[in-house]
């Protein structure tokens, strides 16, 4: 399947029957696919008049306790960021998929990872975070989308799947996980899903407005505790060739990490060992894994390889804590670095 189609199908298989979106390259195939599949599955696809509208359609459905998601690409996600802040502030679960294209502004339509900082640190106003997961294959995109719904409900917080344009556009064989729980678990405790259907007599109120400063402070502490819990329970990463005595450690995510794998395999055949940590969660970031891998005696330098102009490198530097020199290599705007370019960079270290 094409990545965008697989993302749409994964949401349906995860029991999400509410999809609101606005088309934008390179993720429009999700809407194209779901415009056919949602009615078949008994769900709803409604195209909003803009991404801002979409973000509040998501808010409304999420507040009512429905599994809901949207997909967009960079400029569209920027428009949604206001609604995302409200959703996080009101502690509603929802899933956002960003199939990134080159920026800033309208940029271009080719693959990019330039929304790393936006997704992990700066989306919308206020003290909140998204749980951010980054797939490197269509199969992984499927699995992450399906896991994103229960995770969003666990934390009552938006979850973002951050994929570059290649994840949406490339075709790979996929298998959908079976026996997946599709029922939201805890919604009676907080959702405005109607007193008739709810088991408790408690009246639920969904809001992000807290005029009393003490209440707002304590609300923000509740949110903060959730993000600390994510750091304890949700960090995911993958090691590649870290059993070797590597001289260079790469940190790379998404499809960029697949280019790095090809480069690492090539260098290994030339007798040069390079290890890699691939973060699967970008927030929370696998700080300790990167620090530990950088601390290995054989490792003389660390490099963040990105399809952006030096964004993840900030998290890599923070994780390495000055123990080893940290470099950045990347390209942006749709020119995906080739394995040869990554090899040349590694050899220059």
């Amino acid at each position: 399947m094409k990545g965008n189609e697989a993302i749409g199908e994964a949401a349906i298989r995860a029991g999400c029957l509410n999809y609101f979106a606005y088309p934008i390259t390179p993720q429009s195939e999700v809407a194209e696919y779901l415009s056919k599949r949602m009615p078949e599955a008994g769900g709803v696809f409604l195209q909003g008049e803009s991404e801002v509208a979409v973000s509040y359609m998501i808010f409304g459905a999420a507040a009512a306790g429905a599994r809901v998601f949207t997909t967009s690409s960079s400029p569209g996600i920027s428009l949604m960021s206001e609604g995302i802040s409200y959703i996080a502030g009101a502690q509603c679960p929802a899933v956002f998929v960003n199939i990134m294209r080159g920026g800033p502004g309208l940029g271009g339509i080719l693959p990019s990872q330039a929304d790393y900082l936006q997704a992990t640190k700066g989306i919308g106003h206020g003290d909140f975070r998204l749980l951010v997961m980054a797939p490197a294959s269509v199969q992984e995109a499927v699995e992450m989308v399906m896991e994103a719904f229960p995770l969003a409900e666990k934390y009552r917080n938006p979850v973002m799947i951050l994929g570059d344009g290649l994840i949406g556009q490339m075709m790979e064989p996929v298998e959908f996980p079976e026996n997946f729980s599709v029922e939201p678990s805890n919604k009676d405790e907080w959702a405005t899903n109607g007193m008739d259907t709810r088991k408790s007599d408690q009246r639920n109120l969904v809001k992000s407005l807290f005029l009393d400063p003490e209440m707002l402070n304590s609300h923000n502490n509740v949110l903060r505790e959730k993000y600390e819990r994510m750091k304890r329970e949700e960090i995911r990463f993958e090691n590649y060739n870290t059993d070797s005595d590597y001289n260079v450690l790469l940190v790379s995510y998404g499809t960029m990490s697949r280019v790095c794998r090809t480069a690492i395999d090539q260098l290994k055949s030339e007798g040069f060992e390079v290890g890699m940590i691939r973060p699967l969660t970008l927030y929370p970031f696998p700080e300790k894994a990167v620090e530990d891998a950088a601390s290995k005696e054989s490792c003389t330098s660390v490099a963040s390889i990105e399809m952006s102009m030096g964004q993840m490198v900030e998290d890599v530097e923070r994780s390495v804590r000055g123990k080893k020199p940290v470099q950045w290599f990347g390209k942006c705007g749709g020119e995906v670095p080739t394995p040869e370019e990554v090899i040349e960079f590694i050899k220059s270290l």
Partner: peptide, 9 residues
């Protein structure tokens, strides 16, 4: 003969 491959192939 596949021509439309991702950048790592």
């Amino acid at each position: 003969k596949r021509q439309l491959v991702p950048p790592w192939k």
